[in-house]
Structures are given as C-alpha cells and as structure tokens.
Amino acid sequence: MNNDEAVIRLTEVEQSRAHFKLGPLNLNVPKGYVTAIVGPNGSGKSSTFRLLLDLAKADRGSMEMFGEPVGRDDVKLKQRVGYLPDDSLSEEDSLRGSERAAFTKIWYPGWDVNRYTELLNLFEVNPDLKLGKMSKGMRRKFELTLALSHDPELLLLDEPSSGLDPLAWKKMIEVLHHYMEQGNRTILMATHIIDEVRRLADYIVFLVNGRALGVYEKDELFSSWHIFYVQDERSVYELLSGIPGIRAKEKAGGGVIKVITNKAMDAEKWLQKEGIKITGRTPMELDEIMASLIDNDRLRMRQS
C-alpha cells in the first residue's frame, strides 16, 4: 500500500468529546481502490467522515486530502469529493428532489446532467417528489445520485446501503463498480454489511473504539484467517499454543479442539509436521475476524 499514492492521509488525528474519544488515528487511503471502514456502532466511522469534510474539527493531528491540508481551500477540495452522509437532513424534507439537485449543481462545476438523469432512471427515482415524501430507500438512492453526478474523484459513503432493498442494493454495487472502472477513482466507505465488503472492498480498515486496528488487503485477510478443528489426543491442547498465528483455542466437545489462526498456510504446515490430525477447517467471516480482533485489543488494553 505504501507504493500507492494516498488520496487521504490522516496522521495522529484526535478528537475528544465528553463521551467519546476518536483517535489517535493514522490512516492512508490509497488512490484507485475501495477502502472499507468496518466497525461496531459508535466506533467513530461517521466522526471520521465529518472530520474529513471539515464539518467538525480535530483537536490534534493533521489531515490531508489530495495532498492538500483539510480545512483551507475548502470549496475546491470539496468539489472533487462526493459525500453520502449516514442520515438525511430533516431540514430538506420540504424540498423537491429537483430543487435539491438545482442547489447541488450550483456548487459543482463538474455537474453532469446526463449522468444525473441516467442514475435517476436506473434507480427509478421520481425527482418531483418532496424529499420528505420519498420512501427511505428512494431518498437514499436520490442522495447517492447527487453524490455521483458531479463526477467526483473521491467518494465518501457512510453506510450507503441503509434502507435499500436487495434489488436497489445490487444496482448500487454495479454503479460503484462502474464508477471505479476508470482506475483513478477512490472510494472510502463505512459499512457493516459483510456482503458489501466482499463485493466491493480492496482494503479493509477495522475501526474499534475510535482506533484503527490495522489496514488489511481483503483477499489476504480472508485467506489467512481460518478455523481449524483438530483431534484432541495426547497433549495436543497444550501443544497448540505453538501453532503459527494462534488467536484462540478451545475444546469444542466430541474430542475436537477448535483453533483460530491468522496464518492459515503456516498453521496447516505446522499441524502436519506435528502429526496433529485436522478433522475440519473453515474460513472466517468478517464479523468473526472483527470479534477476534476486538477481543485481542481488549486484552492488550487491560495488560498495558
């Protein structure tokens, strides 16, 4: 990831609030890729977006977008960004879609009316409706259309699929894939939809309690985190502490031990070398990996 140009660069960013502390956050978002921020509710995903758009101020640290510091030449930077906030603004309820679009258009020189119309048709959105009268899904699709219609270089999507039905969701995924085709576009998205990460992401950032627990290449992550089930005999349980990448082990009953590793290939070789019988194995899902990372993080915090 270091070889790639970073579109967003956060260095030691901190924001303290009465009930929540974000950071210190260090994060590079590489150009040309889809980076997904995943994390439990209240882990700081939306706060991070708000900081990036200068809608809130950080107490410490530096933030760069396209190599420029965030918070100075605001208008120019924001014209290159498409932002989909997690919640709709209730202040806009009485505006018709077309009125809202006319307002957006003023601010973005790159506004492409054909693109706007094409997306409205694709998503089957009626822009004559007042935003407050649209269903949750239609409003989401409308707001996604707005975020995409000025041909931004960077998309910041906060829980983009909330409220979308499966058909609309599929269309959204296709639109975002198509958006990325050009190769120089970048998406940073917050999500907790596992399938969304599977289909879209290239990199995954785990954000927990306001801190990033690492940036992972998606395919590498999924192929290295596996659960092995091995036969409980001799002193295998004790021996297993030495398995490469061990994250957890437990007796699963029925004479079987369950081991979680984040170095599946090495672990498999090690088991064979030690003559331990593997009775089953399964790759882990994103939520399971996250749960394990959170457990480990808690342990480390308690120890320090």
């Binding site: 890729y33 894939h177 990325m180 085709e181 290449e217 395919d219």
Partner: peptide, 16 residues
C-alpha cells in the same frame, strides 16, 4: 476483462 471487472466477477480485490 479489465482488472476491476474480473475482480468483481470473482468477488476478490483488484490487488489480487
């Protein structure tokens, strides 16, 4: 297929 296209089809990342 383009890198992004094949990645989408195989549900893996463009890096791969």
């Amino acid at each position: 297929p383009s890198i992004r296209e094949l990645a989408q089809h195989l549900k893996c990342s463009v890096i791969t």
